[in-house]
């Protein structure tokens, strides 16, 4: 008896629908990939088929239940293709144990985003909706480190995003779509060329997660504050991004100060405050459109 080969074969029968069906229809073909001795071979062939199917279904349902919890609006669409894609993900992206539950949930979101963006079956906003819920889930599940306040803003400051802040721009007004879907209304399918930027903030040890919907000029400011540019260069970058010839020193500075107050930016880069850092908390009480 090898034990390892039997265990490998059993595990695959539990999680791999296609392999299980092959085994049930043509066991010789399925089992030829495993070095089983005669006793092990009899053990596998003697499994209770109905119970095996029941167990496999329970594994699939358990995994999809986690996705439903993390992507409530996506599943609230009630679209059969979402269920189809969830089943497909379960099959083609089997859990090998390296991802972990959290990463599996994020990977599912990315899978839906890519599938929905490339098909004409789902409404055009579904990819954005999945991306929005993925970032919102990450904001709630991930924790950014607490950091010390970093002083005041001056001309030498090189403002940067606070560790854990993540800005994402969507083609659709995903906040309105999410509200419509979860309240049973039909969402607008209209997209905006300018996009809908949203700042997500992961939890910190002291604050809950949150998100804020910002406007395009504010998004340009957040984008410019990458920790490398002093304030005059931030202003120039925003002017260039927005295609505005006027001097924007005052409105950009006011916006940076407002974002500093709200913990989106820091006056200087802090450890982990670049884009590669995990995002952070969202502050529900400042879910207002920002502008300057």
């Amino acid at each position: 008896m090898t034990t390892s080969e039997l265990q490998a074969c059993l595990a695959r029968l539990y999680v791999d629908d296609a392999f299980r069906e092959l085994f049930l229809r043509w066991p010789e073909a399925a089992l030829q990939g495993y070095e089983l001795d005669p006793v092990e071979d009899r053990a596998v062939r003697g499994l209770d088929v109905a119970a095996l199917r029941f167990f496999a279904a329970s594994l699939r349902n358990k995994r999809v239940k986690r996705f439903r919890h993390a992507y409530p609006a996506l599943f609230a669409l009630g679209h059969p293709h979402v269920d189809r894609l969830a089943a497909r993900y379960h099959q083609v992206c089997g859990d090998d144990g390296r991802l972990g539950i959290h990463e599996d949930i994020l990977a599912f979101g990315r899978f839906i985003e890519r599938c929905a963006a490339g098909d004409d079956i789902l409404p055009p906003y579904v990819s954005d909706l999945a991306r929005f819920e993925r970032h919102y889930y990450a904001a709630s599940a991930e924790v950014a480190p607490a950091v010390r306040p970093a002083g005041a803003l001056d001309e030498e400051s090189r403002p940067a995003r606070h560790p854990g802040i993540r800005m994402v721009t969507f083609d659709h007004d995903v906040v309105a779509i999410e509200e419509a879907v979860t309240s049973g209304r039909k969402p607008s399918e209209e997209a905006s060329a300018g996009g809908y930027p949203i700042v997500f903030r992961h939890r910190t040890p002291d604050a809950p997660h949150g998100m804020v919907r910002i406007n395009t000029p504010t998004a340009a400011v957040v984008d410019a504050c990458d920790g490398t540019r002093p304030m005059p260069a931030v202003v120039d970058h925003v002017r260039s991004r927005l295609g505005i010839a006027d001097d924007l020193t005052t409105p950009v500075t006011e916006t940076v100060i407002r974002l500093l107050d709200r913990g989106v930016l820091t006056p200087v880069p802090l450890d982990g405050s670049r884009d590669t850092a995990p995002a952070e908390v969202l502050v529900a009480d400042w879910v207002h459109d920002e502008s300057f």
Binding site: A11, V15, F55, L59, G94, D96
Partner: peptide
């Protein structure tokens, strides 16, 4: 087992 996380107790 190597390469597969069953996702539950078996």
């Amino acid at each position: 087992v190597p390469g597969i996380d069953i996702g539950h107790l078996s």
